[in-house]
Amino acid sequence: MIKGLYDHSAFQRNQLLQWEKTALEKFETRMKDKNRPFPCIPATVGFNTNQLRYGFVGDPRTSSAMHDVVLLLSDYTKTAKKYGKFTSLIIFYETPQDLKKTHTVEMFEQLFWQQLRRLCEHDEMEWPNHIPIDPHNPIWEFCYNGEPFFMYCATPSHQNRKSRYFDYFMLAITPRWVLQEFLKHETLAKRIKEQIRKRLENYDSILIHPDLNSYGNPDNYEWKQYFLRDDETSLSQCPFHQILNKNVE
């Protein structure tokens, strides 16, 4: 049976399996680190105000895990706005040792895009009219259940780009309206972006990835930022380029 959406109170419950408790504890440690603050400021604000929600699914190679991700994201899209202005859905995948030992960053990249493709296949709502279906359009964004989302993936295989490392395969799914709220004041938004880049420089042992950009810029492609490799390379074409939402005519 799929576990529901949790908040920080899950730490005080006995409902979680050991690996789930460990994942939450490691995530909490990362978000609370004052000496080496996590680069994504909206994520730390969401964490500190208990607006993040957490879900747990099985091995990302299994169909059952994909089924559970569909249920979690479907529930989240219906309830997200009641959690606060800086909410995100954090999905932890059970990541067995054989997966950690055998999968490279590029192999996890394939797993990530498989998750998004299958989400798209299970989406029962039409693609929003204001979001183009071509991922090579600068204002394209992944959508599910009628909601545009920024997708972030972390893996156990990242080494240089610590901002994309986590002990478990993990997704952080943030509604576009959250980012719009956070950056709605131009002067403040500029300062926040500068702080994020400084944090990235201190956090990672590699230069900031050249694909990092701002939504809406003519040379920006959101899909390239969803999964950043552990070097400066990236896919030349979005895996979504031939996928059209089945409800889009």
Score class of each variant (00 low, 15 high):
K3M: 12
G4A: 10
L5P: 02
Y6S: 06
H8D: 08
A10H: 00
N14R: 14
L16V: 04
L17M: 13
K21F: 11
K21A: 14
K21G: 06
A23G: 00
A23V: 03
K26A: 10
F27V: 04
T29H: 09
R36H: 14
P39I: 11
C40S: 02
P42T: 09
V45H: 02
N48A: 15
Q51L: 13
Q51Y: 07
Q51I: 10
R53M: 03
R53K: 14
G55H: 04
F56H: 01
F56Q: 01
G58S: 12
G58H: 04
G58N: 09
H67S: 13
D68V: 07
L71I: 11
L71T: 06
L73M: 15
S74M: 09
Y76C: 02
K82A: 15
K85Q: 08
F86Q: 08
L89E: 01
I91F: 01
Y93D: 01
T95F: 00
P96A: 11
D98H: 09
K101M: 09
T104N: 07
V105P: 00
M107I: 10
M107P: 01
E109Q: 13
R118A: 08
C120I: 12
H136I: 10
W140C: 01
E141Q: 10
C143V: 07
N145F: 07
F149K: 00
F149V: 05
A154M: 11
A154D: 02
S157M: 12
N160S: 12
R161P: 00
K162P: 01
R164Q: 01
T174F: 05
P175G: 11
W177T: 13
K184T: 14
H185Y: 15
L188G: 04
I192R: 03
I192W: 03
Q195D: 10
L200P: 00
D204V: 05
D204S: 07
S214I: 15
Y215N: 02
D219M: 07
N220F: 12
Y221C: 05
Y221E: 02
F227E: 00
S236Y: 12
S236E: 15
Q237M: 15
C238Q: 03
I243E: 03
L244F: 15
K246V: 13
K246M: 13
N247E: 08
